[in-house]
Structure formats: structure tokens, C-alpha cells
Simulated scan of single mutants.
Amino acid sequence: MIDQTFIDAVRATFPLFDGELTRDMTAAEVPGWDSFGHVQLMFELEDRYGVKIDPQMALTCRNVGEFVDLVRK
């Protein structure tokens, strides 16, 4: 399950995205989610959740679900 905080972070980082966010989605399916956007999302998630995300681990995430799981760790 993807919580609303994560969804809000994605929408704030990628304002052109207006679809439903699923765990199986990849960056290629979200407009603007490139390597720079990935880093921006990581910082947005750190701010919203009050956590520190290991950048190397964030770069290994292959889909939204893996990113959600990383944030929950």
C-alpha cells in the first residue's frame, strides 16, 4: 500500500503526474521522473517523513513499491 504522504510527495515533485500511483509503476511512467527528479523526490520524502534516505539505496529502487519500502525502513 502507498500512503498519502508518499503520494503527496510524488505529486509535489512531479506536478504533471495526474494518474494513480501503484507499487509496480516505474519512473518511466511518471512525467519528469528522470535522475534529477529521483533525487528531488528523495529530498521531498526525507522532509515529509523526517528520515534520511541512503542515496545509493534510492538509486537501486526499480519501481515505486521498492521506493516506498525503502522509506519505511
Rank of each mutant, 00 (worst) to 15 (best):
I7C: 12
I7D: 13
D8L: 08
D8M: 06
D8A: 12
D8P: 04
D8V: 05
D8Q: 12
V10P: 05
V10D: 07
R11Q: 06
A12I: 10
A12V: 12
T13F: 10
T13Q: 11
F14D: 10
F14C: 10
F14H: 10
P15F: 07
P15T: 08
L16P: 01
F17I: 06
F17R: 04
G19F: 07
G19P: 04
G19N: 04
E20W: 10
E20K: 13
E20D: 14
E20C: 09
E20S: 13
L21H: 04
T22W: 04
T22R: 12
T22Y: 07
T22I: 01
R23D: 12
R23S: 14
D24T: 11
D24C: 01
D24K: 08
M25N: 08
M25G: 06
T26Q: 15
T26L: 02
A27Y: 08
A27K: 13
A28R: 05
A28C: 02
A28D: 12
E29Y: 07
E29C: 06
V30H: 03
P31F: 02
G32P: 10
W33N: 03
W33A: 02
D34I: 05
D34Q: 00
S35M: 01
S35W: 00
S35R: 02
S35Q: 05
F36G: 03
F36Q: 08
F36V: 15
F36K: 01
G37C: 05
G37W: 07
G37T: 09
V39W: 09
Q40N: 12
M42T: 15
F43D: 07
F43P: 04
F43K: 10
E44L: 03
E44D: 12
E44F: 06
L45R: 00
E46L: 06
D47I: 00
Y49A: 01
G50M: 07
V51C: 09
V51Q: 02
K52C: 07
K52I: 14
K52G: 08
K52N: 11
I53E: 02
I53R: 01
D54I: 02
D54P: 03
D54T: 02
D54G: 01
P55C: 09
P55H: 11
P55M: 12
P55K: 12
Q56T: 11
Q56R: 12
Q56L: 12
M57R: 15
A58R: 01
L59M: 15
L59R: 15
T60C: 08
T60V: 12
C61R: 02
C61M: 05
C61Q: 01
R62I: 03
R62S: 11
N63L: 01
N63Q: 00
V64S: 05
G65M: 11
G65I: 11
G65T: 07
E66A: 06
E66G: 01
F67W: 14
F67I: 13
V68P: 05
V68H: 07
V68M: 07
D69E: 13
V71Y: 03
V71L: 04
V71C: 06
R72N: 15
R72Q: 14
R72H: 14
R72I: 05
